[in-house]
Design a protein around this nucleic acid. Structure first.
Lengths: 200, 200
DNA sequence: CAGGGAGGTTAGCGGTCGTTAACCTGGACG
DNA sequence: CGTCCAGGTTAACGACCGCTAACCTCCCTG
């Protein structure tokens, strides 16, 4: 992703605040007036930028899933070294995302069912592709894993990595690098154990 | 827990259905009429059993946290063998819970903020005690872990174990025992890796 | 300098939802 | 056999919320 130096557009401000509020109190728990207030305009002013409250959530969730998948594909294509290196790169990318965009990670697996059918199908499809990307790489590193087992393991590791919102507010943590390293180690350890490697 | 053979009371029916609906569509996404319909009575009839919709959520969340903590304490007290055996017992108990009561696991970390202040504080306190129970045992097994690191590791492993709702509907799974064993292995592998043990 | 669109504002409509009120009913029990 | 209460019912109220309508006001541009 190209680094952004220009000021965020109003649309982006709204999306960011909406993500935070949705993550904190749930989609139905947040009113449009609150979202407006969070960016300094009031309620119905949002409708100059979005078709409705649903559209904000849809754009957030589609955006998340798309970013994860795109980033994952890029890492698979670019990583040099064996399958081990690719897996490490995937883990690193997911951790970056989980640490930098906690509200989005929270929304990701919490508000999916609030979407229109078509949007939900799209998000699910992107998520599935992302999972399959991981499954392929994991099975390359650990050929002992059957496909269903590898898929379960991937979902479980996502659960592990996505636990960042529960780790206390950023600042109470030992430091970003240390936390990232811990998560990385644990994810790799979990995969290795799934494959039956000795972990004693 | 004593095994129940008698029929569930109406209160219990309501709580069970409410948990399922809350987990599926979120607290604010479910109306009292739906909850009533799920147990064969209609809307306001619920108020003969609960003070309000909030009270149902509160009872569910306090119940979950209390059960987890009580079960955890019991396992710590009863487990024979060393710290390893205690940790295995804790993991096993948490997995049983995650596999048997998926809706509750979902609610557990999703709807906490919808509670009255006093209830939320109570739930948080029970959760904290449960985490500390784990932290102590984990540090006994892996003395290399500092306390903050052990706490982070415990939260992350909870994320891993609580991923069961994402593993596909129960029936698409390879079988309960197999899944439980996989989760157990991965949890132990994650802890071992957190402590820096070789996992290659 | 006229004009028009982008991006705000406030007022208010329509629907939904939690909750209460008022009423009904069957069965346990003195 | 009368009574009373647990556990239902339907009607309706009041609050809230998403969204639209109508209007205003810069600022850019021909």
């Amino acid at each position: 992703m190209a680094t952004r130096t220009d000021a965020p557009t109003r649309r982006e401000q709204i999306l960011k605040e909406a993500a935070r509020l949705f993550a904190e109190r749930g989609f139905h728990g947040v009113g449009v007036d609150e979202i407006g207030a969070a960016v300094g305009i009031s309620g119905p002013g949002l409708y100059r930028h979005f078709a409705g409250k649903d559209a904000m959530l849809a754009e957030l969730l589609v955006g998340i899933s798309g970013q994860l998948l795109t980033g994952g594909k890029r890492r698979v294509a670019e990583a040099d070294g064996g399958a081990e290196a690719v897996l490490d790169s995937l883990v690193e990318g997911h951790i970056d995302f989980a640490l930098d965009d906690r509200p989005l990670i929270t929304l990701h697996d919490r508000e999916l069912d609030r979407l229109r059918d078509s949007d939900r199908k799209l998000v699910r499809q992107l998520q599935r592709q992302y999972v399959e990307l991981w499954v392929e790489v994991v099975r390359e590193v650990y050929p002992a894993l059957t496909e269903p087992t590898a898929r379960s393991a991937v979902h479980s590791v996502f659960g592990l990595l996505n636990s960042t919102p529960h780790l206390g507010r950023p600042g109470a943590l030992p430091g970003r690098g240390v936390t990232a390293a811990l998560l990385h180690r644990m994810a790799r350890g979990a995969f290795a154990a799934a494959a039956g490697d000795a972990v004693l």
